[in-house]
Design a protein around this nucleic acid. Structure first.
Length: 433
DNA sequence: CCTTCCCGCCATTAC
DNA sequence: GTAATGGCGGGAAGG
């Protein structure tokens, strides 16, 4: 029963509350210039290769059976970004997104949750989000790193013999009376029974909600930001994010979620799928950058412009993912891939926005742990390394400000900038341990 | 077989 | 109460 659910096309359902701001209700579908859609991309850098050899246009062949690839969160994310990442967009409605992308509401929640956790979106109200875009990522990453480091030291200071759940209930702080992040609490889930006597922790029952995808995403990212290794397999990540309380079934679920997250982050080009150096196990590598630094600010480096795979792109049709069930037949557009090329990388975007910032010295890549091989020198084939870096974020921040003529956004960014400066100076001043 | 992970039921939470 | 959110895991596609 309840075959179709969703997309209640009728019922108004308080769609767009009268936002005081200039909430532009998105241009008309018709006028809307369809963003470029990435088609068939072969699994990211990893080179999962192959993929479906479907023709671009035309594809007169068999109406292929249903393909999961077309329904992946990664693709959906790509399309989502393509749809909203433009200057004139600042408000995102869930219903609208679901409709335009042709997916169930549930999926939009997935996307939105992870995007929000990396600073690309901010929840405004029920059914309503504010689009921040890639510009919000740096700040979010920095904060995550900060928090992560703090947590680490906090944990290190403790001398707990038992492998209890090292739970750090962090929370917002900041002297500023500004609640920028409210739902940021780290909590490791725990099975059902166990530990008859609960320590001083265990907040009033239900907070289980904070086991969310968003939080998981943040913790996952934190892993990359602090870890010394350059790649992690999802199993490993799951294990690490899950204390040690190896709960088998519990971990399976965790891994499932990590797959979801990894796909999204992958489509944003924040991570990339690879092989673990030694074992041949699949793992992920961080592409963004925000490693620890000694006082002198953070550096961002861009890996050699992502192998610009000759991905096919298609425009014209709107990026609506046709709604088809598992066992349905899909027709044309065999779209797959991620945000490719030019616009794909956060940092490229930043670069573009800044219109400059060409430094020579930067920190690229992790310092190979031990015997860990890095790409790069391995093959002299690397010809064009377009690594650029942004020396200081302050500069970047100020460059960003005038960027937005929109009052609301400007405000928002101003606030971010201030936050950066705040902790930044605090950091440099108080760095010496 | 094992890995990847989409779908959507249904518990929670918001209104 | 209804609607909005979002865990969670079955089980199918992909390799």
């Amino acid at each position: 029963m309840a075959t179709a659910q969703g997309t209640t096309s009728s019922s108004a359902a308080a769609d767009a509350p009268p936002p005081p701001e200039v909430a532009q209700p998105l241009p008309a579908p018709a006028l809307y210039q369809p963003p470029r859609l990435v088609v068939d991309g072969a699994g990211g850098g990893g080179g999962i290769g192959v993929g479906v050899g479907v023709g671009v246009v035309g594809k007169p062949c068999r109406h292929h059976a249903y393909s999961r690839k077309q329904k992946s969160l990664g693709l959906l994310c790509t399309n989502f970004v393509a749809l909203y990442d433009r200057e004139d967009v600042e408000s995102v409605g869930l219903d609208d997104a679901a409709m335009r992308l042709g997916v169930e509401r549930r999926r939009i929640y997935d996307i939105v949750n992870v995007l929000e956790s990396i600073g690309m979106l901010v929840r405004r109200a029920k059914n309503r989000y504010t689009w921040i875009g890639f510009g919000g990522v740096p700040a979010a990453l920095m904060e995550l790193k900060e928090r992560a480091l703090r947590e680490v030291s906090s944990v290190a200071s403790l001398s707990l013999d038992e492998t209890s759940a090292a739970n750090v209930s962090d929370d917002e702080d900041d002297a500023d009376g500004d609640a920028e992040s409210e739902k940021l609490s780290q909590s490791i889930d725990n099975p059902s029974s166990d530990r008859p006597d609960a320590p001083p922790c265990k907040l009033r029952s239900d907070h289980r909600k904070e086991k969310s995808l968003g939080l998981l995403t943040q913790n996952f990212v934190k892993l990359f930001l602090t870890m010394e290794l350059e790649t992690i397999s999802l199993d490993e990540a799951a294990k690490r994010l899950l204390g040690e309380g190896h709960a088998e079934s519990n971990m399976r679920t965790k891994v499932r979620r990590l797959y979801d997250i990894a796909n999204v982050l992958s489509s944003l080009n924040l991570i990339e799928k690879t092989q673990q150096v030694d074992s041949r196990k699949p793992a992920f590598r961080w592409l963004g950058q925000a490693k620890r630094n000694q006082g002198t600010g953070v550096t961002v480096a861009i890996p050699p412009t992502k192998k610009m795979l000759p991905n096919k792109r298609a425009f014209g049709t709107d990026l609506t993912n046709i709604d088809n069930k598992r066992g349905k037949l899909e027709s044309t557009t065999e779209s797959k891939g991620k945000l490719t090329q030019d616009g794909g990388n956060v940092f490229n975007n930043l670069q573009k926005q800044l219109g400059q910032g060409n430094r020579s010295d930067f920190v690229y890549g992790p310092f190979h742990p031990a015997g860990a091989r890095k790409q790069e020198h391995d093959n002299h084939k690397v010809q064009e390394k377009e690594r650029k870096s942004i020396q200081d974020w302050e500069n970047l921040a100020s460059s960003f400000r005038p960027q937005y003529q929109n009052q609301a956004l400007s405000d928002l960014f101003g606030h971010y900038v201030e936050a950066w400066k705040s902790w930044y100076s605090d950091l440099t001043r108080d760095t010496a341990s």
